[in-house]
């Protein structure tokens, strides 16, 4: 991934056109609803406006090349973890939050450095990247011992481990994907399809959602929305097949399932955390979306599952 390669990549250019087209179409649809049909579109309008800023940022970081993308992803993971730490109260413990930040930096480094020896050659130290939770968990568990503390440590340590594994390492798989031979297709598809899956769940829920899906966790989610989003996600790999021309029918089906199910699971996991704490949003950084974590949550399941599926069938690099 380099700026030149991105500009020459048919896949990158096609996605840029698709996303621009979707944003223009959505903007026109909202404008018609708001000014011609005089409907109330307040919160959706805010969400849409934030997309107008986020979409160029995502394309810009991919256009910037492998290093830029990995650094941006680690920053996002760091911001996501910070929101989690502030929401749970873990942020008051500098040592534990510091250890998680070190873990996130380690995710970035293992994504950046080349494989030292053995296995498949190429960028990214895959073996260490996959083994990182061992070292991070060991470091986090060492902290109460180093500080000679007991009270409340199990809660702190457990929160830090969830924070690292979920927001740092699992989300970090998206950064590692930048090392794949088919990085543009994989990354752009995973990000685009997961966001479409979110939008589809919202739209289908509004249109045919009646029965609640997980009433205690996310009261607004319905079976209609969930199944509608899954259906859209199952069709999408076929429509955007140019993203991974080497995929067969089995891989396309798996891709659809991973995005359709994983996207919703990621969302629900963050909802469980929010409901348990008793807050509405993880932060207030993105108007109309909530915090960064509220935006990236769906990608957290999808990224590792897709990476390992693609790696299993074709090798990554």
């Amino acid at each position: 991934m380099t700026p030149q390669a991105a500009l020459q990549s048919e896949i990158f250019r096609t996605y840029a056109w698709i996303v621009a087209g979707v944003l223009v179409a959505a903007g026109l649809a909202l404008a018609v609803l708001r000014w011609i049909l005089k409907k109330e579109v307040g919160s959706v309008w805010l969400t849409y406006r934030s997309w107008l800023i986020m979409a160029p940022l995502i394309f810009g970081s991919i256009l910037g090349g492998r290093v830029v993308f990995i650094v941006v992803l680690c920053l996002l993971a760091g911001i996501g973890f910070k929101e989690f730490a502030r929401a749970t109260g873990l942020y008051r413990d500098w040592w534990l939050t510091g250890a998680v930040y070190i873990g996130i930096i380690a995710v970035g480094i293992t994504c950046l450095v080349p494989q030292p020896q053995g296995e498949e050659p190429g960028n990214g130290w895959y073996g260490l990247f996959v083994a990182l939770p061992v070292f991070a968990v060991a470091l986090i568990l060492l902290i109460p011992i180093a500080r000679n503390r007991v009270q409340g440590q199990l809660q702190g340590v457990a929160l830090a481990i969830v924070g690292f594994i979920y927001m740092g390492w699992m989300f970090g798989h998206l950064a590692f994907m930048a090392n794949a031979t088919h990085a543009y297709g994989y990354l752009l598809y995973v990000i685009f399809a997961t966001e479409i899956n979110d939008v589809a769940a919202f739209t289908c829920g509004r249109l045919f959602g009646r029965r609640p899906f997980r009433s205690n966790i996310s009261p607004k989610k319905t079976w209609g929305g969930t199944l509608g989003a899954l259906a859209v996600s199952l069709i999408l790999p076929w429509l955007l097949r140019f993203s991974f021309p080497h995929f067969g029918a089995k891989q396309l089906l798996l891709t659809g399932l991973i995005v359709g199910i994983g996207g919703q699971l990621g969302d629900l996991v963050i909802s469980v955390i929010k409901r348990d704490i008793g807050i509405k949003d993880m932060g207030s950084g993105i108007p109309g979306h909530g915090g960064v974590l509220d935006r990236i949550d769906s990608l957290i399941y999808v990224a590792p599952l897709f990476l390992h599926m693609a790696g299993y069938f074709y090798g990554l690099r």
Binding site: A87, G89, Y91, R92, T97, D276, I277, G283, S284
Partner: peptide, 28 residues
Amino acid sequence: TWRYEPAADLDQSLAERLRRFPREPDLT
């Protein structure tokens, strides 16, 4: 049951968080 203590300024914008006092600790 765990006891969570979310930051008091969780739902505030950056400017609001800087304006309040005492401010919540922030590593950044």
